[in-house]
Every structure is written in C-alpha cells, then in structure tokens.
C-alpha cells in the first residue's frame, strides 16, 4: 500500500504540489488525472525519489520511504516512462533485462535474454525484435518494450506515466488492454498518470483528480461520472467552460 500524506513540492516560487493526500491500496490500479502542468509527473517522481519532496511523508507498506534502503525500495518498482526512455545504446533485449544483467537481481546472460524474450512476447512483440535497437522501432513498439522492461523483474508496484501519449487510438487501446491484463495477472499495485479518459476507463480501479496541487476528487472509477464534482465533471467531459480556468 502506498500512502501520501500532506505532500508538498515547490520549484522556487512555483508551488506544484500543495498538500497531496492519497492512498493506493495493495493490488489496486489507481489512475491520477489532471490537466497538463498540474504536477502529475512530479507526484510520481516524488514517490520514486527522483525529485525530493519539499515536505510531507510517503509511506510504502507503512514504512517511510525516505528512511528505506534505496536499492531494496527501487527493486519493488517498475516504471513505464512517457517516451519509453529506452537506452539508445542497448539492444531491445538488453533494455528489457537491464535490471537482470546487473546489480542484486543479476542473472546469467542467457537466462536474462530468455526472460526478455518472454516479456517481449507478453507485450505482443516477436523474438526477432530482441536484437533491434530502440531507434529502429515505431512509437508503439517502443512503448511495448518500455512496458516489457517495467515488468521484467516482476515488480510489486508499477507506475505508468502517460502510457498512451503520442499513439494512434488503436495502439493506445492495445497498450491500455495490455496494462490492464498485466496488472491483473501480476496482482501488482499500479499507479497511472494520464489525461486520456479512454485510458482511465480501461485501466482504473480508482481515480484521483489532481488540481491546484491537491487531490480534488478520488473514488472508484464507476462513480466518476456521477461524482457531482464540478472540476471532475469539466475535466472528464472536456468542457472549456467551468471552474478550471483554460488558457486560450
């Protein structure tokens, strides 16, 4: 279970997170929605320790992550980055099994390659892709490889940062389905940030809306359409008019 308590983050004078309180129960898929620049990515980066929070507490299974042993903490996570963030200098299979080729989870090369090919197959890519380089792949394939890398070490918690951004609607649907299936079959806790409402409906058990640096609304995905929250209503229906100011 991940708990965020009164999380704040500022960059100079700019306050991005202003007291985020959120609980992600074990084995559930939480999707955080919100407009561009509302701090969704910063939220994920704070949890992973990529950006230090200005104040507040992040608990993982009741333990303060600031005091946790870093390697052991990170070994529990997998992350799919918005642009894939694949390493250009490594082949696809080396990207997928990056964690299995070094560090505490190191395996023999042949075994790591076998796991990589298995994970590639799981995300719908053929073994022939294994020896290609990221630059030789399409955007959709890069996302799939990123997804394979995120699940390669069987993490307990998986983060997805804008998983469908930049993809055509059909490929976005394929990625959404994959994420849902994989999270369910692994029993993993998932946190996805997106502003794609199709993704939300496909992936989420619960939804949280981030607005003005705070959680504006949170609840089961089924209650999202009848929340009565004007901010959430405006966002999910994509209305220009409403309490959320839109810059024109």
């Amino acid at each position: 279970m991940i708990e965020l308590r009164d999380l704040h983050k500022s960059f100079g004078d700019k306050k991005v997170l202003q007291g985020v309180n959120l609980t992600i129960p074990k084995g559930e898929s939480m999707v955080v929605i919100g407009g561009s620049g509302t701090g969704k990515s910063v939220l994920i980066k704070c949890i992973l320790g990529l950006v230090p929070p200005s104040s507040g507490v992040i608990l993982l299974d009741g333990e303060d992550v600031a005091k946790a042993e870093r390697d052991a903490f990170l070994a529990r996570f997998g992350m799919l980055f918005q642009g894939g963030a694949l390493f250009d200098s490594l082949s696809v299979w080396q990207n997928v099994s990056f964690r299995l080729l070094r560090g505490s989870l190191k395996r023999p090369k042949a075994e790591a390659r076998e796991i990589a090919i298995d994970k590639l197959r799981r995300v719908g890519l053929s073994p022939e892709v294994a020896d290609l380089y990221p630059a030789e792949l399409s955007g959709g394939m890069q996302k799939r490889v990123g997804l394979a890398r995120a699940i390669a070490a069987e993490p307990e918690i998986i983060f997805f940062d804008e998983p469908t951004t930049g993809l055509d609607p059909i490929m976005a649907g394929v990625i959404n389905e994959l994420i849902r299936e994989i999270v369910t079959e692994m029993g993993a806790t998932a946190m996805t940030i997106t502003h794609d409402m199709t993704s939300v409906r496909a992936i989420a058990d619960k939804v949280a809306m981030l607005h003005d640096g705070m959680i504006q609304w949170t609840g089961p995905v089924g209650e999202m359409d009848n929340s009565g929250d004007p901010y959430l209503d405006q966002f999910i229906h994509g209305r220009a008019e409403g309490p959320i100011e839109s810059v024109r």
Binding site: L48, L50, G83
Partner: peptide, 17 residues
C-alpha cells in the same frame, strides 16, 4: 544531455543503477 531530456537518466535510477 539527450539521455537526461528523454528521461533515460530517471529510467536508470528506477532500474536501481
């Protein structure tokens, strides 16, 4: 720098490197 702007450095960290 390219790795930094394409989040590859962040990816390295999340992969315990």
């Amino acid at each position: 720098a390219t790795m930094k702007v394409t989040e590859q450095i962040d990816a390295l960290v999340t992969l315990s490197t």
